[in-house]
Structures are given as structure tokens and as C-alpha cells.
């Protein structure tokens, strides 16, 4: 009897410690970034591009990086979505044999684990070969490649949760594979698919290494797909590396803005997710 109680308490203790650790880490990160960055976070930081002498502490802002990151991620998220959804749906057993699907999953998991600098280097090699310079287009392509494995695998997990009996129910009515997929599988896994997109977005917007050589960096807001483009992670990276304390503080302000965007997207996604979950069968 005592042993069971002890076991119960150990488990409870472990769970509490783990959760506290998670909350403490998040709070710590936000706190550090806020304390260091809030002082230099002001309106001009958000709406102005860097002026002359900005990197020595003079005025200007990082609108170039904010807009740049949003451009990059809008492009990458949309193109990754267009590729990932059919790919994830194809992993269903109606379309691919279990063996081939599992093999594909293995490949995707390896790609998922590949360091993003490798993606960056790969993209760079290709761009040199094509005679392209660092650009918004290059950044979007590499970010798309970077987030596709996450998006497909997260969608795949959501789709696999659809009970087989539910699909069988549709097939019993005489649906084709496409009809079953559209009317049942997609509807049932919509919240999960949505989460997959957000997850991939989160990974992409925070990544610096993949776009270092492929998107480049610039103080301007790009006007064409072939212009180089700034981004928030690289804004953090470059500014934190300068010797000027004011500029270092601005790195934290940039990080704060990045955190805020990720938070906002997550909250909006949760709110929308509830609407999608209305018809779900449990």
C-alpha cells in the first residue's frame, strides 16, 4: 500500500517539476528579452528602416527585417502548404503501400533533423550554379524546403488519427478515395492540419542559418522577388554581434518582436481551430 502511494507521489512530483521547468524556461526567455529589449522598443523601431549610422546607435528601425520575415514566411508557408497537403494525404494506406509510406516518413524525419545551415549551404550551391544572388525568392525556396518535412509529418500524424472505421463508413456509402479524403479525412483532421502549418511557420520564421546566404540582408524593403531581403533572426544575429550597447539592445527588441509574432500567430490559430473542430467525430 505504502509502495503504491510512494509511486503515485514520485510520478506527481516528476510531472510538476517538468511542467515548472517548461514554464520557467519560457518565462526566463521572455523576461531576459523583455528587460534587455523593451527600452529600445519604440514605434520607429517597428515602422522605420535603418538610417545612416543605425548600426552605430543612430536612429532608424528594423521594419526591413519585420516585413522581410513576413514576406519570407508568407511565401514559404503557402508554398510548403501546397506541397505538403497532397503529400501527407498520399501517405494514407489507400494511396501508398505501408512500406513505401513508412520509407517516406523515414526520409522526412531525417530531413527534419538535418541542421538548417545544411539547407542554407545546399540552397547557396544551387543558386551559385544558377547564377542567382541572395534574394527573397532564394530565401522562400530554402525556407519552404526547410519546413516541408515538419509540415508533412505533422499533417500525417493528424491524418493518421482519423479512425479507420470512419473512413470505412464513407466507403460503405460508395465514396471514391478522393471523396472520402475531402469529405471525411480532411474535415476530421482539419485542426491538426492547421497546427501543422503553425508548427512549420514557427520553425521557419525563427531560422537564421538557412537564409544567411540565400536571402541575404539589406536595409531596404524588397520590391521584387529577386531583391535581397532582411529578416528578424538575422537582425538579432547581426546586431547582437556589434560592440555598441544600444545596437545590442535593439537585437533583443528584434527578438521580442519575433516572439510576439509567433505568439500572435499561435493565438489566432487556436481561436480559428475551435471553429474547425465543430464537426469532429470523437
Amino acid at each position: 500500500m505504502k509502495k503504491r502511494k510512494l509511486e503515485e507521489n514520485i510520478f506527481k512530483g516528476l510531472m510538476i517539476v517538468s511542467l515548472l521547468l517548461v514554464f520557467a524556461a519560457l518565462a526566463g526567455i521572455i523576461l531576459v528579452v523583455a528587460v534587455k529589449g523593451l527600452s529600445s522598443l519604440n514605434l520607429s523601431m517597428i515602422i522605420e528602416t535603418p538610417k545612416g549610422g543605425y548600426y552605430l546607435g543612430k536612429e532608424g528601425g528594423i521594419a526591413n527585417a519585420i516585413v522581410g520575415s513576413l514576406y519570407l514566411m508568407a511565401g514559404a508557408t503557402i508554398s510548403a502548404f501546397i506541397i505538403s497537403l497532397p503529400a501527407a494525404l498520399a501517405l494514407q494506406k489507400e494511396y501508398l503501400s505501408r512500406r513505401f509510406a513508412d520509407f517516406t516518413r523515414l526520409i522526412l524525419d531525417i530531413l527534419w533533423g538535418t541542421p538548417s545551415i545544411v539547407y542554407g549551404a545546399f540552397g547557396f550551391v544551387i543558386m551559385v550554379f544558377l547564377g542567382m544572388r541572395a534574394s527573397l525568392l532564394g530565401g522562400i525556396v530554402v525556407l519552404t524546403l526547410l519546413i516541408i518535412p515538419i509540415m508533412i509529418r505533422a499533417m500525417d500524424e493528424a491524418i493518421r488519427l482519423v479512425p479507420f472505421e470512419l473512413k470505412e463508413m464513407a466507403y460503405a456509402l460508395g465514396t471514391t478515395r478522393a471523396e472520402t479524403t475531402l469529405a471525411v479525412v480532411l474535415k476530421q483532421s482539419l485542426p491538426g492540419i492547421f497546427t501543422a502549418v503553425i508548427l512549420a511557420f514557427g520553425r521557419g520564421i525563427g531560422d537564421a542559418a538557412s537564409i544567411l546566404f540565400t536571402a541575404g540582408y539589406t536595409d531596404e524593403i524588397p520590391t521584387s522577388l529577386l531583391d535581397p531581403v532582411a529578416s528578424l533572426p538575422l537582425a538579432v544575429f547581426f546586431q547582437i554581434g556589434t560592440p555598441v550597447p544600444e545596437v545590442q539592445a535593439r537585437a533583443y527588441a528584434a527578438a521580442l518582436i519575433l516572439l510576439f509574432i509567433v505568439m500572435l500567430i499561435n493565438i489566432i490559430a487556436r481561436l480559428l481551430g475551435w471553429r474547425f473542430a465543430k464537426n469532429i467525430v470523437r
Binding site: 479512425p163 472505421e165 470512419l166 470505412e168 463508413m169 464513407a170 460503405a172 469529405a183 471525411v184 474535415k187 476530421q188 464537426n279 469532429i280 467525430v281
Partner: peptide, 11 residues
């Protein structure tokens, strides 16, 4: 066909 466990369709 009416299955043993009749799930409703998600609609």
C-alpha cells in the same frame, strides 16, 4: 452497409 460501430460523418 450498416457497421457494428456507426460513426457519424464529420458534418
Amino acid at each position: 452497409f450498416l457497421p457494428q460501430h456507426p460513426y457519424p460523418l464529420p458534418m
